[in-house]
């Protein structure tokens, strides 16, 4: 039998970016082992697009687009589904998973004993969720082009935009997981996520709401993604997009900062 003969002097240097990358590698390894989890995230938005965009689209007909010109309902709703599925995927990926690893599986207790810091863990988990959400979004964009007849080259820019939505919500998901005490707390996440999905001008234009509700929706995070993706996918970009993206980036940054603080408290008491 061989003895590992550990000797003094083996100092493993790991550059800053390499530390979270090792945990992202771990997550990919686990996901490769359960391929069906990949399928759900792809299939869900496509089902929405078929049932609501194409199905209800037959009854609804046309909708006013961002610049007022009428567009087919499927083309109107598809970019919103792109943004919402980026949100749903990221939140799902981050909250339940992270809570489990934090409190039940205690995986992170082992991880913080290595050179990785709680910040590295937050970065890695959010990055893993973003990678996954980006793959879903890319696949959905293809499905969208086929099913709703999206043709504008601007639509390609909807991908990074959806990735930013994924980033912002993954960071928010990690943050909420850090504050949860039990599984029932997930109902509170649903309580936020569900209205965001339904009311962020996802299925009809903002103009149907009374003014006060419009203001509320315009201040909500998912609306930024829906509005930006819609303008890009319909080939009608405006300068507003810059504002939407800045909002999402700021949300991501704030959520990451809070996540890091909270995770540090939890994991290195």
């Amino acid at each position: 039998m061989s003895s590992p003969a550990p000797r003094v002097g083996v100092t493993v240097a790991s550059p800053r970016f390499a530390r979270p990358a090792a945990l992202v590698g771990r997550n990919l390894m686990v996901q490769k082992a359960v391929p069906y989890v990949w399928a759900t995230g792809l299939v869900e938005p496509v089902f929405y697009l078929l049932s609501i965009g194409v199905g209800i689209g037959h009854l609804v007909g046309k909708m006013p687009g961002p610049n007022g010109a009428e567009v087919p309902y499927a083309a109107f709703v598809a970019p919103a589904l792109l943004a919402s599925s980026a949100m749903n995927g990221a939140v799902y990926e981050c909250t339940t998973n992270i809570f489990d690893k934090l409190h039940w599986a205690k995986i992170y207790r082992g991880v913080v004993a290595t050179p990785l810091t709680p910040r590295d863990i937050a970065v890695a988990e959010v990055a893993s969720a973003v990678v996954r959400s980006a793959l879903y979004s890319a696949a959905f964009l293809v499905a969208m082009a086929v099913l709703s007849g999206t043709r504008s080259p601007w639509a390609l820019l909807a991908l990074p935009c959806a990735v930013l939505v994924g980033l912002a919500f993954a960071a928010c998901g990690f943050m909420s997981a850090c504050y949860m005490r039990s599984w029932t707390d997930f109902d509170k996440v649903m309580l936020v996520q569900m209205p965001l999905f339904l009311f962020s001008a996802t299925f009809y234009p903002l103009s149907v709401f009374p003014r006060w509700l419009q203001l509320l929706v315009e201040a909500a995070p998912l609306y930024q993604g829906v509005a930006a993706c819609r303008e890009l996918c319909l080939g009608q970009p405006s300068w507003d997009i810059i504002g939407h993206l800045a909002y999402l980036a700021a949300l991501a940054g704030a959520a990451m900062a809070i996540s890091t603080r909270r995770a540090t408290k939890l994991l290195t008491p």
Binding site: P6, T11, P15, M29, R109, A113, T114, L116
Partner: peptide, 30 residues
């Protein structure tokens, strides 16, 4: 990076196999 830690409560990665537990942990050390 230069310490080994055996915690009071096992916190092995239950989503990975026995050998992958060692492999992934080694990756954390670069």
């Amino acid at each position: 990076a230069r310490l080994g830690v055996v915690p009071q409560e096992d916190n092995l990665d239950t989503e990975l196999s026995v050998s992958d537990n060692l492999y992934v942990y080694g990756r954390y050390f670069g």
